Computed example of a mutant assay.
Amino acid sequence: MNPTQNHSQVSILGIGTALPVHEIPQSDITELLTSHLEDKPDLARFARRIFRSCGVDTRYTVEPSYKGTAGECRYLPAGDHSNIPTTEERMDTYKREALPLGLEAAKKALKESGTHPEQITHLITVSCTGQYSPGLDVMLIRQLGLSPRTNRLPLMFLGCAAGLKAIQMARDVVQGAPGSRVLVVCVELCTLHFQPVMEKEALFAASFFGDASASCVVGEAEDHHADYLQLGTGYSVLLPDSTEDMTWEVGNYGFDLFLSPRIPKMLGSHLVPELDKLLAGDSMPELWAIHPGGRGIVDSVQDVLNLRDDQTRFSRDILRNAGNLSSCTIMFVLNAMVSDLKSQDSASKEGVAMAFGPGLTAELMRFKYVPAQVSSQKTETDHVYL
Rank of each mutant, 00 (worst) to 15 (best):
L341V: 10
P64S: 03
A221T: 07
P371G: 08
P100G: 01
D282L: 13
V352N: 00
F157C: 09
R49S: 15
F356R: 01
F51N: 04
R45T: 15
G14N: 05
L189N: 09
E188H: 01
A347I: 15
G68Y: 06
Q311G: 03
F258W: 12
R313I: 14
A205N: 01
A372F: 07
K107N: 11
G296H: 05
V250G: 02
S133E: 13
D227T: 10
S236M: 11
S27Q: 15
A214E: 02
G254W: 00
A98K: 08
H225K: 08
T17E: 07
S180L: 08
I124M: 08
E38Q: 13
G79Y: 04
N151Y: 13
L275T: 02
R366H: 11
C73R: 00
R313C: 15
V218T: 10
M139W: 14
V384M: 13
K342C: 11
D92T: 14
V187F: 05
S113V: 08
Y369M: 02
S242A: 09
S242Y: 02
W248P: 01
L155H: 10
V333F: 00
L341F: 09
C73A: 09
I167A: 11
M169P: 09
S348N: 05
D310F: 14
L140K: 10
G159Y: 00
F157W: 04
S133I: 14
D282N: 13
L341R: 10
A362S: 12
L386I: 11
L192R: 02
C216M: 02
I330K: 01
S53L: 14
K277G: 03
P196A: 00
A336R: 15
S242L: 04
D309Q: 15
H383Y: 11
R52G: 10
M331W: 09
Q131L: 15
